[in-house]
Design a protein around this nucleic acid. Structure first.
Lengths: 146, 146
DNA sequence: TTGAACCTTATAGTCGCTGTAAGGTTCATC
DNA sequence: GATGAACCTTACAGCGACTATAAGGTTCAA
């Protein structure tokens, strides 16, 4: 198989596949005499693994660690469990933050719904957001989302 | 005030403040005779606005548009309302996506909780994630999720 | 006069790709 | 055998909002 077929079969782009090779997640593919990459069916498995792991929220670096373990004959399953448990926790925190943000934004929007627009040459920019800035200062403790 | 004090007072980094200046969100600061940036108290307002708007999910480009309007004497409030309403919608979608992902991850973790670890020289990498990859094949049609 | 703590610019790196440029290959059709 | 479309190759720039680093100048107290 050439890279285009692999791309079509995995739902990845050819660019992404080359990128994974460059990053060491795929072994260097063999080539035709004119330099085209050639893949066997096992590449589909590996790419399906990478794709699934990405969709579960693992970074390429984490995936590479798992693949390297597997390639050297060690069972990566335990590490996968730990990794995913960590991701789940992180995801919980992220969702909680975004829900907080959403509620803040919603309250804010309904608060400003009735306010008049105003141009101002004064030191405040938009009274609408200024109001929001005057929010309890420890709400500013929430770090930037994603 | 020099940049370090502004940074400490706003909770931003000096680098970020210089970056905002480069990107046109702040006017070029005046300088001491040795080249240090000097800020008046109004810079704190402007930076508080930027920070708050960022926390509400606006991009620097969107914030710049609002600031430019305000600087030219037009009321940006209407645009701010529209911008924030859009962000709220987007936020709703993002949260829904992440909740789906979390549920998927949770189900997956409980599914693999009882499975034994295994090293494998075979063509599969980690049976744990392989199970997940063996998902209905037309699910592969769904384009890559961010 | 030493040193720490501050400031300056410029440049590279982050992440996971995508997009583009500039070119070579394959294959069917004219 | 010439043309053209569809494929492939590499290399490099760009995204967003910064952070990190290098290499140097300034300020101020001990």
């Amino acid at each position: 198989m050439k890279i285009g077929e692999v791309a079509a079969r995995t739902g990845l782009t050819a660019q992404a596949i080359r990128y994974y090779e460059r990053e060491g997640l795929l072994p260097r593919a063999s080539r035709t005499h004119t330099g085209y990459r050639l893949y066997g069916p096992e590449a589909l498995n590996r790419l399906a693994f990478i794709k699934q792991a990405r969709q579960l929220g693992l970074s390429l670096e984490e995936i590479k660690r798992v693949l390297d373990m597997s390639d050297s004959g060690r069972a990566p399953c335990c590490q996968v469990r730990t990794l995913l448990a960590g991701k789940l926790e992180h995801l919980d925190r992220t969702i909680a933050e975004l829900v907080t943000l959403r509620d803040q934004l919603r309250r804010f929007l309904s608060k400003i719904a009735g306010m008049p627009d105003q141009a101002d040459a004064s030191d405040h920019i938009c009274r609408l957001i200024q109001v929001a800035a005057a929010v309890p200062p420890d709400a500013a403790r929430t770090r930037q989302s994603r």
